[in-house]
Amino acid sequence: MRRFKLDGLKLGALLWAAGLALPFALDSSWVSIAAFFAIYAITALSEDVILGRAGMFDMGHAVYFGIGAYVTAILNTTLNVPILLTLPLAMLLAAAAGALLSAPLIRLRGDYLLVATIGFNAIFVLAMQNNPGGITGGSDGITGIGVPSLFGLQLESQSAMFWLDWALLGLVLLVMRNLDTCEFGRALRYLKQDELAASTLGVDARKVKTLAFALGAALAGLAGTLFAVQLSTVSPSSFVFTESVTLFAIVIVGGQGSIPGVLLGTALMFVVPQIFRSLAEYRYFVFGIAMIAVMVLRPQGLLPRKRSAA
């Protein structure tokens, strides 16, 4: 068991290192797809913290992704704050939103939380469209977001941005792995499986769940910053309810609480549609059928989480 886990880690590290070479092997449009994969993988992993690990039905996760993107876009375009400085702020604000929005709703039973988070998503998108205070740019959004610079180096090229995204994905993967083997991560699983039993063992459900929401939102905020940079523009349509549904589906289709599962799910739900762009019309029809088929054939997801002893 233990040997296998180490091998899994090694394999992951190896794949990640190999990924660094992608810009040398692919043309720029594919490098851009790879960069989007990294960004959406971080978002999906952040949804997994809340949905897959803590078992809270969050179907409005695009909100936190969006908050991250808008924070970076607004700070960078109006106050000229350097991109990499906006990143911690994006994470912090997304985390605060996650904690604040979830705190009163956490005691709700699964389906009600799901409905409430759908509501948050709808309100968020409407708010961005209605351009409150003239800061969100309405339906057109915000354009002209700058490029990040690291130690005076402008990360302008597609490859440089890819490496930034890829490096941060690596960090997030490490955090997700550590989550498996720390008390906080286990507390999430206790709560997911039996909240009453967990609380009689001293797990403070309210605190742990709020923290999970904040962490998931913070990581989504991080991805939001990267997203804004990658597109150099943000608009409400990138954070609509359908995006939340896709993130939700990635976690369930891939495998709840399973890192390889979520990565595979991201690849299937975000990258494959890019490949079949020419079939645009049939794409989502086939997609819907595939979602049903995967669930019926593999209800636990494509790569379910392994039972582990340690």
Binding site: L179, C182, E183, Q193, R307
Partner: peptide
């Protein structure tokens, strides 16, 4: 969905002094 070990380990939740960020 947990092993016997993991179940019993859950009993030590309050004995763990680590903070969440230390774990991450």
């Amino acid at each position: 969905e947990m092993s016997v070990f993991e179940n019993v380990r859950a009993g030590y939740h309050l004995a763990a002094r680590q903070r969440w960020w230390q774990g991450l």
